[in-house]
Design a protein around this nucleic acid. Structure first.
Lengths: 150, 150
DNA sequence: TTGAACCTTCCCATCATGGGAAGGTCAATA
DNA sequence: TATTGACCTTCCCATGATGGGAAGGTTCAA
């Protein structure tokens, strides 16, 4: 129980958690996470428990959770009477958001690859990519390539 | 050659191009695209050619190009002596960026689905998702699920 | 005691977008 | 012709998560 009592300033906390000092201050400001102690001179002081929480936040950010979702996750983490179903629901909702975003990006990439595949890519100016952007072809909209050929 | 001479104010230009009036003003401000004319009272006036350019921008944004990339695309579009190879290179570079982002998001989704699949999702508190976020298991890092089992 | 390395808060910038205020303009109607 | 409502202008602010940097106080070791 000795090492647990050691309090460290923000620089060390940043190093130990992988969260930048800048972001630690930001999380403090928006009340996502605040270290439990301050020194007499106003320095933030972090315990091992605080570092633990920062690592939790870092890991959740790396998995794409927003600060607000992490707020929720932290609350569940602290709540000993939580239902794992709530955590799972939050995670799966996030997975759905990720999948939506992925589908959007894939549609963009698909269309661009399709257009590029028809571009000679030489020193001549004719270019189906620019033609598409300029709206040549599809009269109104209907751009986008699905690849569902016959 | 009659309809070509018609100049319209920003509201109509917005409707005709699908770009909001707000964004049209923004593109003007950052010099991505400025309408060629202003009325005596300072109203922006848009020609059919201007609308065409706005649609080009909209379409490019929808394909995920950044404003800076669009700047480049617009220049190529106007450049009659362009090489289609340059357009293609720009497009494929963007495709690469999209694919990188997609891969990142997929890794997140993969890991979360994996963790969630081990979560009971009931009214008990035990939860592998929180355990992972809290750093239980992998001592240092090594989180992430690749799915490359045996 | 001094100086380097650290900490604090505060302001600014990013990127593309929207909200809203204050004030000028235009066109149709009373 | 005067009014009115819909439009336009610019300007400021906010978003979300992050970083840069300034001005000034603190700590610690030499």
């Amino acid at each position: 129980m000795r090492t647990t009592d050691m309090l460290m300033p923000i620089g060390q906390a940043a190093q130990a958690s992988g969260v930048s000092a800048k972001m630690i201050r930001y999380y403090d400001e928006i009340d996502l996470f605040r270290p439990k102690a301050r020194s007499d001179s106003g320095y933030r002081l972090f315990s091992e428990t605080d570092i633990h929480a920062l690592r939790f936040i870092k890991r959740a950010r790396d998995l794409g959770f927003s600060v607000d979702e992490i707020r929720h996750l932290l609350a569940l983490w602290q709540d000993q009477s939580r239902a794992s179903a709530d955590v799972k629901a939050l995670a799966m909702e996030h997975v759905r958001e990720l999948e939506d975003r992925i589908e959007q990006l894939q549609a963009m990439a698909r269309t661009l690859r399709h257009l590029a595949s028809h571009c000679q890519g030489n020193d001549r100016p004719e270019c189906p990519i620019l033609d598409d952007l300029a709206g040549i072809g599809a009269g109104d909209e209907a751009h986008g390539y699905t690849g569902t050929g016959h």
